[in-house]
């Protein structure tokens, strides 16, 4: 019988196996902590049943330390698990800087993924095994949550901000992918496939689904067609910040704060330009909120990011 084996869900990454190990040990602790209660309740209810002869004389002194001990000892045991679970969580929350980046947009009721090379897919996510992959999540409308049970991870996609999630899938295969945060009428249809491929297969998949250009190249097209270049190109007459080398740099704001020009800052500057104004520039940037979708913005962010790399390469 392999019923048990099939009941236990697939674990497609080392992290997932670690979570399983933690969960199994914790279940053992649960049994250890609760068994005395169950056993003693049944034993006492039998032994001291009303009408049954039993020695019911109580010891004279109640030991206060007994009470304290059954509060403290389980708590210390649980603290050990707290340390374990929290350290695992910190790993989960800290994507490696060189991870392969994939953009995801949640939208009622589908998942859209964009690869760095410009490949796009809906409700399917192809990734290479053995490689750190980071998914940057955005939402077009309500809160969604990208959940890949085989990896034991999920992350909410929150409108108005970028969140991220990373993994290193080990076992090639096709797994289930779902939206875990209730998002309206067809929430339960917002599911798809998570497909982990061997690196060679992944390269082939990328090539077969090749697009006109990389994400950054598509961003550049948008940069021109949406009119961004009219102000932000070096030869523009309007006094607007140059975007070359901007990404990752500190930006002084009009109100005295200094922020780092990360994905979130660039997104907000496009959609909510009046919220953080770079010091020394007039308030003339219009909002693109009803013009650009979250996917378009992700492309523009990729383009601005590529400008930073380009300017680094140009340095002597």
């Amino acid at each position: 019988m392999n019923d048990f084996a099939s009941a236990w869900p697939d674990a497609a990454s080392a992290y997932a196996s670690n979570v399983d190990l933690l969960a199994l040990f914790f279940m053992a602790l649960v049994v250890i902590l609760s068994a005395p209660v169950f056993i003693l309740m049944v034993v006492f209810a039998t032994k001291y049943r009303r009408g049954k002869n039993a020695d019911r004389t109580e010891p004279i002194n109640r030991n206060m330390w007994v009470e304290v001990s059954w509060a403290v000892v389980p708590f210390l045991l649980i603290l050990f698990f707290y340390g374990w679970a929290t350290s695992l969580f910190i790993v989960h929350a800290s994507p490696p800087s060189d991870a392969l980046e994939i953009k995801a947009v949640g939208k009622q009721w589908m998942w859209k993924f964009q690869h760095a090379g410009g490949q796009r897919e809906i409700n399917e996510l192809h990734v290479p095994v053995g490689k750190d992959v980071k998914v940057v999540l955005a939402s077009q409308d309500v809160i969604h949550s990208l959940y890949i049970p085989a990896l034991r991870i999920k992350q909410d996609a929150v409108p108005g901000r970028y969140t991220e999630l990373w993994f290193n899938a080990e076992k090639p295969g096709t797994y289930w992918l779902a939206c875990a945060e209730f998002c309206g009428t067809d929430h339960s249809a917002m599911t798809g496939k998570f497909i982990a491929l061997r690196p060679a297969d992944y390269s082939r998949w990328l090539a077969e689904n090749g697009s006109d250009g990389s994400l950054a190249a598509e961003g550049e097209k948008l940069f021109v067609s949406s009119g961004c270049s009219g102000c932000h190109s070096p030869d523009a007459k309007v006094h607007a910040p140059s975007l070359a080398g901007l990404y990752g740099r500190p930006v002084p704001l009009e109100n005295g704060d200094v922020v780092t020009a990360d994905d979130q800052y660039i997104r907000d500057s496009i959609l909510l330009p009046q919220s953080q104004i770079a010091a020394g520039y007039p308030h003339i940037m219009p909002t693109f909120e009803n013009i650009l979708s979250e996917e378009d913005v992700l492309k523009l962010v990729a383009y601005v990011k590529s400008l930073a790399k380009a300017s680094e390469e140009n340095l002597p």
Partner: peptide
């Protein structure tokens, strides 16, 4: 309440 377990 355990962080890594809750993520799943």
């Amino acid at each position: 309440a355990m962080l890594a377990i809750d993520v799943h």
